[in-house]
Simulated scan of single mutants.
Amino acid sequence: MKEAIRKVIEQEAEAIKSIPVTDNFVKAVDLIFERVHKKKGKLVASGMGKAGQIALNIATTLSSTGTPSVFLHPSDSQHGDLGVVQENDVLFLISNSGKTREIIELVELAEILHPGLPLIVISGNPESILAKSADAFIYTGNPSEVCPLGLSPTTSTTVMTVIGDALVVSLMNKIGFTSEEYAKRHHGGYLGDKSRLQARILKEEQDKTKK
């Protein structure tokens, strides 16, 4: 069993290393920066099923690191929640197939509400309608799932998560996000304590430099 577990980890690690790092990563970061930090909009993330859970995680991580983001469930968007979308926002959509019906419908409805809303799409299908509609398309590399049935989202969701982490870190660097700013957003738990400690140490060092 340990050998089988090791093989799963190795296969997923290889999929991560095989993610195509293209100019679209940079384009996505610049687009988020333009819409959220310059035009004061927000990132609206969406996805169905497991991809939706990854989208939610990316949205909450972005929010805690200085880039306001929300998660919009594609089904709920058809029952009034689409109203959360505003004209300066950017849609951030995840669909491994690139043809998830609910996500395509979300794009169509958002276009009616705010024509020309930019789209960032993460998908394993570069020929899909979502990929071709995107202003910035990030390809996962379409790795094979480690699921023994080849069905359950496993490797694909790992890769999606890592792509999200890369975007989060790139944005943190671009906006110069600090421990002090993190502490303002994350008050509870170990991370809240750690960020406040880091901010306090940094301030003490800056005060010493001024003297």
Rank of each mutant, 00 (worst) to 15 (best):
N125K: 08
S123P: 13
E111T: 07
S128H: 11
L72Y: 10
P118T: 08
A51M: 08
G116W: 08
S69L: 01
S123L: 06
L106H: 14
L113K: 15
L43E: 01
K27V: 00
N24R: 00
E34W: 09
L72E: 05
N88H: 15
Q78D: 09
L93M: 03
G49L: 04
S46G: 15
H37W: 12
S69C: 05
A15H: 15
S97P: 05
F25E: 00
A55K: 02
M48G: 00
I19M: 01
I122L: 15
F25R: 10
S18A: 13
A134V: 10
A136P: 03
L109I: 12
A59N: 09
A15S: 15
L119A: 09
I58C: 06
K17D: 11
P115W: 07
E108H: 15
S123W: 03
A59L: 12
T22L: 05
A51T: 10
L130A: 02
P68W: 12
P74Y: 09
K17A: 14
I122W: 05
G47Q: 13
R101H: 04
L106F: 06
G141D: 05
E127H: 02
T100G: 00
N142L: 03
N57F: 04
K17H: 09
I104C: 07
V121C: 02
E108G: 06
P118R: 13
N142R: 12
T60N: 12
P118Q: 12
K39N: 09
N125R: 05
S46H: 10
P68H: 14
V29R: 03
L113C: 00
I120E: 01
H79Q: 07
Q53M: 13
I54S: 10
Q86F: 09
E87I: 12
S97M: 00
K50F: 04
P68S: 11
R101A: 10
S133G: 14
I58M: 03
L62S: 00
E102A: 00
V70M: 02
H79F: 11
A28L: 02
Q78N: 14
S64G: 09
T22Q: 04
I112C: 00
